[in-house]
């Protein structure tokens, strides 16, 4: 087995070393990535079952989806609904993988470079909650589509998850950028 590469600056140089974020943050990020992986695998493994479930829920709610009882028309509507249902699951898979890594990277920057303890805690909380919550919105949207339709499902997911959690993550990222820019400027 090969030996590890030596860290150029030495293992304990505090002036130039990254500081890890709190353990709960690491746990959330790793769990989010794991959920994304499981989500992607489940989508592939249970595609038929998921499609059958979404279709049967939609068929129980013809008024929600505008089903008229004419096979040609209804099949087209159901196909579009299933495409969006599948897209929601795929977007959850992709965003959860990405945001897990974004949480790891940005909270590490915050833990290392934000000097004020209160600001550091607030940024880490917003980056973690926003980053982990946002991808779940795609899962919520997918689940809502058969019950409430594509557009209404999207509106609910938007106000319930995407805007609050996505907004938190974006605000925290710009806050972090301002802090790092101030450090670059020497303040």
């Amino acid at each position: 087995m090969s030996r590890p590469i030596a860290d150029r600056a030495g293992p304990t140089d505090p002036a130039t070393a990254w500081r890890l974020p709190p353990r709960w943050v690491l746990l959330v990020a790793v769990l989010l990535i794991a959920c994304a992986e499981v989500g992607g695998a489940s989508m592939a493994r249970f595609k038929v079952e998921l499609t059958r479930w979404a279709r049967s829920v939609a068929l129980d709610r013809p008024a929600v989806h505008g089903l008229v009882g004419v096979r040609d028309v209804d099949e087209r509507i159901l196909d579009e609904m299933l495409v969006k249902f599948d897209a929601g699951l795929r977007l959850f898979h992709m965003h959860a993988e990405g945001m897990g890594l974004v949480i790891l990277a940005t909270t590490t920057v915050a833990a290392t470079l934000v000097r004020a303890a209160g600001a550091r805690r607030a940024l880490i909380l917003l980056l973690t909650a926003g980053g982990a919550g946002y991808p779940l919105g795609y899962l919520v949207w997918s689940w809502l589509i058969p019950y409430h339709g594509i557009e209404r499902g999207k509106a609910i997911a938007e106000w319930l998850v995407w805007i609050p959690f996505g907004g938190a993550a974006i605000a925290a990222l710009w806050g972090l950028a301002i802090v790092v820019a101030a450090r670059v400027a020497g303040r």
Binding site: R8, T16, A17, T106, V109, L173, L176, A177, V180, V184
Partner: peptide, 18 residues
């Protein structure tokens, strides 16, 4: 792990934020 220069960190955070 060692931290890269602040300018590099700033560009990474800005690109993520954008």
């Amino acid at each position: 792990m060692t931290r890269p220069p602040l300018v590099v960190v700033l560009v990474a955070v800005l690109v993520l934020a954008l």
